[in-house]
Amino acid sequence: MKTEKRQPKKWVKELREWTVSLTIAIVVALLFQTYVYAQSEVQNVSMQNTLVAGQRLIEDKWSYRFHEPKHGDIVIINGPESELRLIKRVVGLPGDVIDIQNGEVYINGEKINEQYVKGQTFPGRVAIPFKVEEDQLFVMGDNREHSMDSRELGPIARSSIEGKAIFRIWPFPKFGMLND
């Protein structure tokens, strides 16, 4: 008696191949979203007029692994400083001395040109002038009169920076790169 080796049916083999391919695609997409680029939604008014509630952004989670944030970067913060994820602009880097006088911001004694700011800038709970320490950032929202930022929360730990907002994908009329 001859033993016959059973061949799996063609549809079973194809189903297995599709399942493996889809599983790999899903895992790669999840890893990409977790560690490289992600989609974020603006939740509040603290970045008006640059960003408004409901806009959707692409967040770069990758590049800050290779270089540090710069003045003017729009960053997404997810750390112990706030219960909420925040979107703010980097104003002060380690070593900078931040001062606020007559509604204007000064870094290391020089007034900075902030064309994107809505409203006047007032000091908050943080004693001004404020020196930004190593591994910290000083961030502020563009809507200065309605922003919970480093003036209230204090400096933000570098490790709390989740990524940089780089691209607006919604609404379509505003589609494009975010200008620093």
Rank of each mutant, 00 (worst) to 15 (best):
A53M: 11
I169H: 07
E134F: 05
S147D: 02
A29G: 01
K131P: 02
E114Q: 09
M177Y: 10
L57V: 04
G163L: 02
P8H: 10
G72L: 08
L51R: 05
K174W: 11
V105H: 00
A29D: 07
D180H: 11
V42C: 09
P129F: 01
I76H: 06
P173Q: 06
W18H: 11
G154I: 05
A53W: 03
I24D: 07
W11P: 03
G72I: 12
L178Y: 08
V20A: 04
F130M: 10
H71F: 15
V12R: 10
I112E: 03
Q7D: 11
P69L: 05
A165I: 09
I156M: 09
E68M: 09
V52E: 13
E114I: 02
G54M: 11
L153I: 03
D135L: 00
E14I: 13
K10W: 13
R65E: 08
F32N: 08
Q48N: 13
Q48M: 13
I74W: 07
R151L: 08
I98P: 02
A157K: 12
V52G: 07
N49K: 13
L137H: 05
I112S: 07
E104H: 13
G95I: 03
V45C: 09
L30P: 01
E104N: 13
K118V: 06
E41T: 14
M148A: 12
G141P: 03
V28R: 05
Q33S: 15
E68T: 13
N179R: 13
G54A: 09
N78S: 14
E133P: 00
M140T: 03
A127Y: 06
K2C: 00
L31I: 11
R158V: 02
N102W: 04
E59C: 09
S63N: 10
Y35C: 08
I156P: 02
I161S: 04
I58A: 07
N108Q: 05
P171V: 09
P94L: 04
H67Y: 12
S21T: 15
H71T: 14
D60Q: 05
K174C: 09
D135E: 12
E83N: 09
E114W: 01
F66S: 01
P155A: 15
V45I: 09
E110P: 00
I74S: 06
V52I: 13
Q48Y: 13
E145P: 05
F172E: 07
V36A: 14
P129L: 01
V126D: 01
N113V: 11
V126W: 04
S150K: 04
V97F: 01
I112K: 12
